[in-house]
Design a protein around this nucleic acid. Structure first.
Lengths: 323, 323
DNA sequence: GAATGCTACTAGAACGTTCTAGTTATTATT
DNA sequence: AATAATAACTAGAACGTTCTAGTAGCATTC
């Protein structure tokens, strides 16, 4: 079980170590015949190039670090799919790190990526403070996805506009008591809040806001409080929270889409299922991932701009919880 | 932005490179005072140990590779939480790789983990063939989670028993036309199928089986076919498929839990929501992750057994789709 | 007061790659 | 026929750590 190294392959194939390296990296400088020979010997010996050694020795290995906040929220799976759709075509490598409910965990995940010497970091759903994020941006190239941040490259959806879309849809359907279930811990909180407030104000209505936290169960509890205030429609800061609202409605014997209308945010595959049929704002998560990956690839080039931000325009997807 | 190395810190702190290494690894051999001094200098210079170099030089770095098949399926998030619950306490490091819908992708993900020189691999939801998996097991220590495999360490739920639980529950409620929506591509397919068949046979009933694939949308289409055969209850191979079944029922104007009963498998947080209230078999995903992590830690020790397998006993969680 | 053990530290050789600067052949150009 | 250009290959120095074997100093033991 002793590890087979590049030297073993070189010796067995009767060539230099350098040539084996060239062959395995697939760069020019080796004849097709010898390359084939080297691969055969390598395969026989069970040679697998040591990625750590490669990353140490190589300056230009195009390693991209990806951070995902929460595996339980499908948004991040969508973003990751988008990232991979772009990256899989090229010759870059991906190092993954995921966050957790614990507060400081996203910082330590970024630390691990930096320690792995990634060239760029794509971070989706960071919860750290703006100032902490700015510090990281000083140390490494970082692209924040879903979370807007001053001084840092970001790929986001226009949360303000998305919130307005949601509320205006409800207003156009004649609602006058529109509540907002907000999560201050989540990306785009301030923008969605502003969008909600402006839309409500412009229609001459009164805002009705309830704060909640990340967990769906908590959203359900807070939704109960909100329902007690008798709104006719509820806009939830994301689909997971919207699910909490629907749960609360059902437990209260109310029918979503009839007694109270509900709009979510994220348009996850969950909202698309006929059971839920959740009207939701589509932030184009997959496209966010793609854009972030493209920027990441740009940043690998020496000519890269320091900062580059993209904002996509969300759309409203009408389903039966708010027809 | 030039990288700060251990040598820079050593020089600036007036100590040897070795001592800086000792301090940062937190091992014995440095006085508290100098360690503090080293950290201060390191912090001032912005030193971050290069993980690649460390992994290359070190023999005993306790690196554990984790493979997750599909970020869209919450089971794997649960498993990962379990893994982390155990691993976060120790001093091991985790390298993550995730699969995708593409067929050969899980093999290349394992290759990457092996190339990263991980000491053990915890692989959740592998879809490769038994023989291919056996080959990997020859090359590296590997623990298969959710997927049982001969000759390979595995942590699984008793799928046979789980399927029987589901079917027997339906039988006890008086059902006589119980269908099974099966996915041959998924873990535990054969066992769940056997469990279903045996339970049905023992009750003197006729099996009614429809195959489907991984995607939920496909499950919905296949569920439609199944419904045409007029079963009174449907057992789905997992929660995602059960969701497809429920979608199909609703589209057909039928009420799950009333017109047709539905049982899923995985007990994901989704099934727990009041909207769905899906009766499901709980394979203890979180515990599976924990057990796998414990075995992985055992395997790091030189005295480790070659193969170690654990099987947990699933339970039935009754909710309103099959009361 | 010599031997022993312990703590705090260091020098220098690994670890397995990549990369720069060559060296040979071989082919093309004048 | 001489020169230039190209292709195929190599030697050896990085890369930034860890680890083994050791030294110096000091307290403890007999």
């Amino acid at each position: 079980m002793g590890k087979v190294t590049i030297n073993d392959v070189a010796k067995a194939a009767g060539v230099s170590r350098s040539l084996v390296s060239i062959a395995y990296r697939g760069v020019q400088g080796v004849s097709e015949a010898t390359a084939e020979h080297i691969f055969q010997v390598g395969k026989k010996l069970g040679y697998v190039p040591n990625l750590n050694a490669a990353r140490l020795a190589s300056k230009k290995l195009n390693t991209i670090g990806v951070f995902l906040q929460d595996l339980h929220n499908e948004v991040f799976a969508d973003v990751f799919d988008g990232i991979r759709a772009v990256l899989d075509k090229g010759d870059s490598q991906v190092v993954l790190a995921v966050g957790s409910a614990e507060p400081g965990h996203d910082a330590s995940a970024l630390d691990t990526l930096i320690a792995s010497q990634v060239d760029v970091i794509i971070a989706a759903g960071l919860t750290m403070s703006d100032s902490q994020l700015a510090k990281y941006a000083n140390r490494t190239k970082i692209i924040s996805v879903t979370r807007k941040a001053p001084q840092v490259s970001s790929v986001t959806s226009d949360d303000y506009h998305g919130a307005k879309l949601a509320v205006n849809h409800l207003i156009s359907r004649g609602h006058s008591k529109i509540a907002f279930l907000a999560n201050p811990q989540t990306d785009g909180y301030t923008d969605r809040l502003r969008g909600y407030q402006d839309a409500v104000k412009q229609a001459g209505l009164k805002p009705m806001i309830q704060q909640t936290t990340y967990a769906r169960v908590q959203a359900e509890l807070d939704a109960v409080k909100l329902i007690a205030k008798k709104p006719t429609a509820i806009f939830a800061h994301n689909d997971m929270a919207a699910l909490g609202v629907i749960d609360a409605l059902i437990s209260a014997g109310l029918k979503p889409g009839q007694d109270i209308h509900v709009v979510g945010f994220d348009n996850t595959s969950l909202s698309q299922t006929p059971v839920l049929a959740l009207t939701s704002i589509d932030p184009k998560s997959h496209a966010l991932g793609e854009e972030a990956a493209k920027i990441a690839l740009n940043m690998l080039k020496p000519s890269a701009k320091k900062q580059e931000s993209v904002q996509l325009t969300p759309t409203l997807v009408i389903r039966s919880t708010a027809p």
